[in-house]
Amino acid sequence: MRFHTRKWIKPEDLNPNGTLFGGKLLAWIDEECALYSIIQLENSKCVTKYMSEINFQHSARQGDIVEIGIQVLKFGTTSLTLKCEVRNKMTRSTIITIDKVIMVTLDEEGKPTPHGKTKVEFVKDRLQNKV
């Protein structure tokens, strides 16, 4: 699993219990999965179709730094299936896991469209191939 983004837990991210609000964390995950899919599938119109069971394992508190990890499980015809884990950067304890997030590429009319991708590609490799 590759960990791409880090977030610093600030007062506005907390729930009344003084821990990271789950909705805020899910929004960060959704955004990270969308960005990853847009870059991977080279289509700016990617949407979340499905998220499997969400497993909160540890809480995060103000001042903690968390990192969001994503792993590609499968390339579908119009979709990309990901796995996600968020962990505390300093302690490496897992905060949340989501076994399956399905992202779908859309055409100009908002309908699922084939993306033609079959494997993980890195932007740096794409740029070298275009030179």
Rank of each mutant, 00 (worst) to 15 (best):
Q128K: 14
Q71T: 15
S93V: 03
K24E: 12
Q40D: 02
I39A: 12
E109Q: 13
C46H: 03
T105L: 01
M51D: 05
Y36A: 01
E32P: 08
V66W: 06
V120H: 15
K100S: 14
D30I: 11
T113V: 15
F122H: 15
K10G: 00
K117C: 13
I95C: 06
T118K: 14
E85R: 06
K83E: 08
K49E: 11
V104L: 03
W8P: 03
D107H: 12
T94C: 03
S44C: 00
T91Y: 02
E108A: 15
L80W: 04
I98M: 11
T78L: 00
F122G: 08
E53C: 07
M51A: 07
M103L: 07
K45E: 05
S79D: 10
E12C: 05
W28G: 04
N88F: 02
E109P: 04
V131S: 00
Y36R: 01
S52Q: 04
N88V: 01
R61K: 14
M90H: 12
Q71M: 11
T48Q: 06
C33Q: 06
K49Y: 14
K130M: 02
R92S: 12
P114A: 03
F21T: 09
Q40E: 06
N55R: 14
I39W: 13
I102E: 07
E32R: 07
E42S: 10
V101P: 05
K111M: 10
V86S: 05
S44I: 00
V47I: 12
N15W: 04
Q62V: 15
I70K: 05
G22H: 08
Q71H: 15
K7E: 13
A60V: 03
R92G: 02
R2P: 10
S93Y: 14
A60K: 04
K74S: 06
H58P: 08
R92W: 12
E53V: 14
I96S: 04
S79I: 04
V120Q: 13
E109F: 14
I102L: 01
K24G: 01
M1N: 13
F75R: 02
G110T: 02
L25D: 07
D30M: 10
K130T: 01
G23V: 07
T97R: 07
M90F: 15
N43K: 04
S52A: 10
S44Y: 03
E32Q: 10
N15P: 11
T19E: 09
D64R: 08
V104F: 05
K45L: 13
E85W: 08
S79N: 07
T19V: 10
W28T: 02
L26T: 01
V72S: 10
I9Y: 05
A60I: 05
G63N: 09
A27M: 12
I102W: 02
R2G: 14
N55D: 10
L35W: 02
C33S: 13
R126E: 08
K74V: 09
L35D: 13
